[in-house]
């Protein structure tokens, strides 16, 4: 069952087309990443889904309902974490969560337990009675995660959840999200951080200049990366024609170059690297250093966002 369906979605700001005829489908239980460089249209798409802005054309549905007409009903089952997070600073963390819980109509006893459980989960229990204005950015982000879970949502929509956080806080937030998705909640995560997407998600849609350039499972992209081979750099003291010829003869070696006393080649896999090393030694070469570089998701991302 499709949780999110986007068809022909377009949003323009004057001359700028922020989202351009976007089509997207997120299935139930998917851990979905919306990946793209800054200004690609990720936040605009999410803002349309949350009904903060309105599309010029196209349709967006969540749980089979139109986001514009049935926004209020849809939002009962959504947990949202915006990129720019703002709380009621004069209220405490507990009071903020209590207010949001009331808007979902959660009864008092259930509400109290739920808030305390969530504060415990995001490690803010000892600061629950502090005003949010006294919180650090990382603490606010954790509180943001807590508020997104107050209604036991079926869909989590997170827009750049680790944006502006220091490495430690980012790590903590990522771990929190990983724990959440283990329970089977559908996640729609917008990010420009590839390693974050790789760690959390199982499906990725790459968007650039408002257009979808690729949607695939992360494992397929990883296989594609593997198919592109490994770049191996071998530092050899006495490179000569014999060594180069013997390396060329090894099956699975492509694009062999010699640069600053280094043999650089693209090889099929690690086994070929070992064969290349043997060939160099047999040809009388003296290896001092071997480096392998596996292409990562970043290269695919850069290639896709540059080409399109």
């Amino acid at each position: 069952m499709a949780i999110v369906e986007i068809e022909g979605l377009t949003k323009k700001y004057g001359e700028l087309t922020a989202v351009n005829n976007l089509n997207l489908r997120i299935e139930e239980g998917e851990i979905f990443a919306f990946l793209g460089p800054n200004g690609a249209g990720k936040t605009t798409t999410m803002n349309i889904l949350m009904r903060f802005i309105f599309p010029d054309s196209g349709e967006a549905k969540i749980f089979g309902r139109d986001v514009i007409k049935d926004g209020k009903i849809i939002r009962k089952k959504i947990g949202f974490l915006p990129e720019e997070l703002g709380f009621y600073d004069t209220l405490t963390a507990y009071e903020n969560l209590d207010f949001y819980a009331r808007l979902f109509g959660i009864p008092k006893t259930e509400r109290e337990k739920k808030i305390l459980d969530l504060l415990e989960m995001v490690k803010l229990m000892d600061r629950k009675d502090s005003r949010v204005s006294e919180y650090s950015h990382g603490m606010k982000q954790r509180l943001g995660i807590a508020q997104s879970l107050i209604n036991d949502p079926e869909l989590l929509v997170y827009d750049e959840p680790t944006s502006g956080l220091d490495p430690r806080a980012s790590y903590e937030i990522r771990n929190l999200i990983k724990e959440l998705v283990k329970e089977g909640t559908t996640l729609f995560l917008s990010s420009h951080l590839l390693h974050e997407v790789q760690q959390i998600c199982n499906t990725v849609a790459i968007i650039n200049k408002g257009k979808l350039v690729r949607k695939d499972e992360i494992k397929n992209l990883v296989n594609e990366i593997k198919g592109r081979g490994i770049v191996v750099k071998i530092k050899c003291l006495n490179i000569n024609e014999d060594i180069i010829e013997s390396v060329k003869k090894v099956n699975g070696v492509e694009d062999l170059k010699v640069l600053k006393g280094m043999l650089i080649a693209r090889v099929k896999d690690e086994r070929v690297t070992a064969e290349v090393n043997s060939a160099i030694v047999k040809a009388g070469g003296k290896i001092t250093k071997v480096e392998e570089k596996t292409p990562n998701l970043e290269e695919i991302f850069l290639k896709l966002t540059e080409e399109k």
Binding site: M50, R51, F52, G71, K72, I73, R75, K76, I78, F80, P82, E84, L85, G86, F87, Y88, D89, Y100, L103, F104, G144, Q147
Partner: peptide, 17 residues
């Protein structure tokens, strides 16, 4: 004020019109 402190996004992400 809701807009400048960005709390409007959390408020309107809840089931309120």
């Amino acid at each position: 004020r809701e807009r400048s402190r960005k709390s409007i996004y959390l408020l309107l992400s809840k089931p309120v019109s």
